[in-house]
Computed example of a mutant assay.
Amino acid sequence: RGVIWYQGENNTNRAKEYYHLFPAMINDWRKKWGKDFPFYWVQLANYMDAVEVPSESLWAQVREAQTQTLSLPHTGQAVIIDIGEAKDIHPKNKQEVGRRLALHALHNDYGFSDVVCESPMPKTVRRVQDKIVVQFDNVADGLIVKNKYGYLMSFAVAGNDGVYKWVQAKVAGKDRVVLSCPDVIDPVSVRYAWGDNPDDANLYNSVGLPATPFEIKIE
């Protein structure tokens, strides 16, 4: 009927190639079976020590390659950036991994169209006066922040120098996040949960699915 795929970590050493390897594999399997069957996968979990400053990450690149592969038809991604473990490359909470995969099958293949299966993803990013506004898709009844003080974490912004800095962020309305970045001159791009282990990523939709890690240019 279809495929579920749990991504292994060995591909992180070939992150740039994975932008081509992963969709090529899916297309090849479908060609050999003669059918565009559903293909749902688990995005890499958070792992290793968290960092204090924004930094480059091969793990984040592989996650981005997985997300871009959603451009293929009949695909879906279970985001588990919130249930990984710093010291264990194999997250123990497999039940929630399976549940998030099952949501895609229920929604797309078994007629449960009311089941929300997709994690929030950025739709547009634009400057509004001295702020940056990120609008999201897949919010269900709205974006929520899982933090007892209401702090939204793990957003970073870079200027033309390519240096990312943490920024203040807050949910504004149903589907928008507003970023304040007074220390970034001429901001050009935004990252969320970009790193080996962004253990403070805490943006979700109303049904509890975590926002997809991303890097995106500002319009």
Rank of each mutant, 00 (worst) to 15 (best):
P73F: 15
P73H: 15
H74F: 15
T75V: 12
G76M: 13
Q77F: 09
I80H: 03
I80M: 12
I81Q: 03
I81K: 01
D82G: 03
D82S: 02
I83T: 05
G84A: 00
G84P: 00
E85M: 00
I89S: 05
I89K: 07
H90D: 03
H90Y: 06
H90P: 02
N93T: 09
N93F: 08
Q95W: 11
E96Q: 15
E96A: 12
V97A: 09
V97D: 07
V97M: 14
G98V: 08
G98F: 12
L101N: 11
A102Q: 05
A102H: 07
A105H: 02
L106T: 04
Y110P: 00
Y110C: 07
Y110G: 01
Y110W: 06
Y110K: 00
G111L: 05
G111W: 06
F112A: 10
D114R: 06
V116F: 12
V116T: 13
C117T: 09
E118S: 13
E118P: 00
P120D: 08
M121F: 04
P122S: 01
K123Y: 11
K123Q: 12
R126Y: 05
R126Q: 12
R127I: 14
R127M: 14
V128I: 10
Q129Y: 12
D130Y: 04
I132H: 00
I132R: 00
I132A: 00
V133Y: 02
V133N: 02
V133Q: 07
V133K: 03
V133E: 11
V134W: 00
V134Y: 00
V134I: 06
Q135C: 10
Q135V: 13
Q135P: 01
F136V: 01
F136S: 01
D137T: 04
D137M: 02
N138Y: 09
V139D: 05
V139K: 04
A140W: 01
A140L: 01
A140G: 04
G142Q: 06
G142I: 05
I144F: 06
K146G: 01
K146H: 09
N147C: 11
N147F: 08
K148S: 15
Y149T: 14
G150C: 08
L152I: 05
